[in-house]
Amino acid sequence: MFAVSAVRADKDDPLAALELGERPEPETPESWTTVQVRAASLNHHDLWSLRGVGLSADRLPMILGCDAAGVAEDGSEVIVHGVVGDPEAGGGDETLDPRRSLLSERWPGTFAERVRVPRRNLVPKPAALTFEQAACLPTAWLTAYRVLFDRAGLRPGQTVLVQGAGGGVATAAIALGRAAGVRVWVTSRSEAKRAAALELGADQAFESGQRLPERVDAVLESVGQATWAHSLRALRPGGTIVVVGATSGEAPSAELNRVFFLQLSVVGSTMGSREQLAALARFTEVSGVRPVIDRVLPLSRAREGFAAMAADELFGKVVFTP
């Protein structure tokens, strides 16, 4: 079957580690089930995998991709939850399972014509969503959903600052927050991305590092070193910063005096549970919110999508269709 794979690790030129072509059907436990992939979305995780982060050399070559929507063996339309937990852990929140992995880390991923997953990882796809829209939910949109309504515990009328306006998590947070009555502020170095964020529903957009007119209740932090100091200074006393990534580096000054004196909460968050993915799918259905898609490409042109992500040229998600 045709697939997009990491064949080696190259931290300086990740696209050089990318290979498109025929791959054998994946070997997985017999209890797993096959999904015919109709759409799969690109995440920064896939780019990091090409750099060798989280993907060891002994697992190469590896089919990439965490997110997909498609058709199950019984003909039902489904969304694939990419977090694979220990089946003996007894259910619950898979993201807290110390033995968890993501598709494309230990098991072949979704950038292929077919993917095999545990049956418990399938969530019904709402009929109102296209396969392309549904494929955007399991990582970026699920991350934003968990941050806003679980880890930050935001309520209507409160304000969240989203660092970096153009990525999949950021655009999801804007759309979801607005639909739930949360005031969303964003930052970006790009004037075009700030304008696009306002058009999508952000209340205000600021240049990166710009002083804000007032302090916020929560910050969604995915950038790391470049924005950490600004994120801490943006919070009101008792506010919460939720860290979901560190794309610019992970060694900023902790500013512990500010953290304890203002009683700030620093919280980590990774994706979300299967139950939260199902709730997110229902939320999009009843609210009318839809994922922002930058471009849809056939899987045979996946390299173009990876290149656009590496160059930070996206506003929203890249979706591949086999």
Score class of each variant (00 low, 15 high):
residue 7 V to W: 14
residue 10 D to V: 01
residue 10 D to K: 06
residue 11 K to R: 10
residue 18 L to R: 07
residue 20 L to D: 05
residue 22 E to V: 01
residue 24 P to Q: 01
residue 25 E to D: 13
residue 28 T to Q: 06
residue 31 S to H: 09
residue 38 R to I: 02
residue 43 N to P: 01
residue 49 S to V: 00
residue 53 V to S: 07
residue 62 M to K: 09
residue 62 M to E: 07
residue 66 C to Q: 15
residue 68 A to M: 02
residue 75 G to V: 03
residue 81 H to I: 03
residue 88 E to N: 11
residue 89 A to Q: 11
residue 96 L to V: 10
residue 98 P to V: 02
residue 100 R to N: 13
residue 108 P to E: 08
residue 109 G to V: 10
residue 109 G to T: 12
residue 111 F to I: 08
residue 114 R to K: 14
residue 116 R to V: 00
residue 117 V to C: 08
residue 120 R to K: 13
residue 121 N to L: 10
residue 128 A to Q: 06
residue 130 T to V: 04
residue 132 E to P: 02
residue 132 E to L: 01
residue 138 P to M: 07
residue 145 Y to I: 00
residue 146 R to P: 05
residue 158 Q to G: 00
residue 169 V to K: 04
residue 182 V to M: 06
residue 187 T to D: 12
residue 191 E to Y: 12
residue 193 K to M: 14
residue 196 A to D: 15
residue 201 G to W: 11
residue 203 D to M: 10
residue 204 Q to C: 09
residue 213 P to Q: 08
residue 220 L to K: 00
residue 238 G to L: 04
residue 249 G to C: 10
residue 256 L to M: 14
residue 261 F to R: 13
residue 261 F to G: 00
residue 270 T to H: 15
residue 270 T to W: 14
residue 270 T to N: 14
residue 280 L to C: 06
residue 291 P to T: 05
residue 298 P to I: 04
residue 302 A to R: 05
residue 304 E to C: 03
residue 307 A to G: 02
residue 307 A to C: 03
residue 321 T to S: 07
